[in-house]
Simulated assay, not measured.
Amino acid sequence: MRTGSEPATARSALRMRFWLSLWGVLWAAFGATVFSLVERPGWAAACAVLFVVAAVDLVVVTRHLRQGPHWQPGRDIPPYEPDHGGRGRRPGTGPGPRP
């Protein structure tokens, strides 16, 4: 919901999240490989699970980056009225003719 208090130059953290998940994929793959070679199956399995989680995150972030920027209302669009707890306006309180 747009409140009107968003910064005009807000930026997404997707690129940072991309690099962090790539870093996680690389280290988890390295850890799973090393722990498999030194016959530590528990640690190898933990690194393999971490690898899968980081790889899924990497795919999601890449998909979001490829979608490109989404439309955001400009400065000429006034902010939306805040949500009043899911209840609609009371009759006679909004703009327009009164009964």
Rank of each mutant, 00 (worst) to 15 (best):
M1Q: 11
R2W: 10
T3I: 05
G4R: 05
G4Y: 04
G4E: 06
S5G: 06
S5M: 12
P7G: 01
P7W: 04
A8N: 08
T9H: 12
A10V: 03
A10H: 03
R11P: 00
R11I: 04
S12A: 07
S12W: 12
S12V: 01
S12H: 09
A13F: 09
A13T: 11
L14R: 05
M16N: 11
R17L: 11
R17N: 13
F18E: 15
F18R: 15
F18A: 08
L20G: 07
L20Q: 15
L20N: 14
L20T: 13
L20I: 13
L20M: 15
S21V: 04
L22Q: 13
W23A: 15
G24K: 01
G24W: 01
L26P: 03
A28M: 03
A28D: 00
F30L: 15
G31Y: 01
T33E: 05
T33W: 08
T33V: 08
V34K: 15
V34E: 08
V34D: 08
F35R: 04
F35D: 11
S36P: 00
S36Q: 02
S36G: 15
S36D: 02
L37G: 05
L37S: 10
E39A: 11
G42C: 00
W43F: 13
W43L: 15
A44K: 00
A44V: 02
A44W: 00
A44P: 01
A45P: 02
C47M: 07
A48L: 02
V49I: 12
F51R: 01
V52K: 02
A54R: 02
A55K: 01
A55P: 00
V56H: 06
V56I: 13
V56Y: 07
D57T: 07
L58C: 09
L58D: 03
L58Y: 06
V59S: 05
V60R: 07
V61A: 04
V61Y: 03
T62G: 12
T62F: 03
R63Y: 11
H64T: 05
H64L: 14
L65G: 00
R66E: 09
R66T: 08
R66F: 08
Q67G: 12
G68H: 10
G68M: 09
G68L: 09
H70S: 11
W71M: 05
W71D: 07
W71P: 01
W71I: 06
Q72I: 09
Q72T: 10
Q72M: 13
Q72L: 14
P73D: 13
P73L: 04
G74V: 04
G74C: 03
G74T: 09
G74H: 06
R75G: 14
D76R: 11
D76F: 09
I77P: 02
I77R: 14
P78E: 04
P78I: 05
P78D: 06
P79R: 06
P79W: 06
P79E: 08
Y80D: 14
Y80G: 13
Y80S: 14
Y80H: 12
E81D: 10
E81G: 04
P82M: 06
P82Y: 02
D83T: 04
D83P: 02
H84T: 10
H84D: 13
G85Y: 00
G85M: 05
G85K: 05
G86M: 06
R87W: 07
R87P: 00
G88A: 12
G88R: 14
G88F: 10
P91F: 09
P91S: 07
G92V: 05
T93I: 10
T93G: 02
T93E: 15
P95F: 09
G96H: 09
P97G: 04
P97Q: 06
R98E: 10
R98V: 14
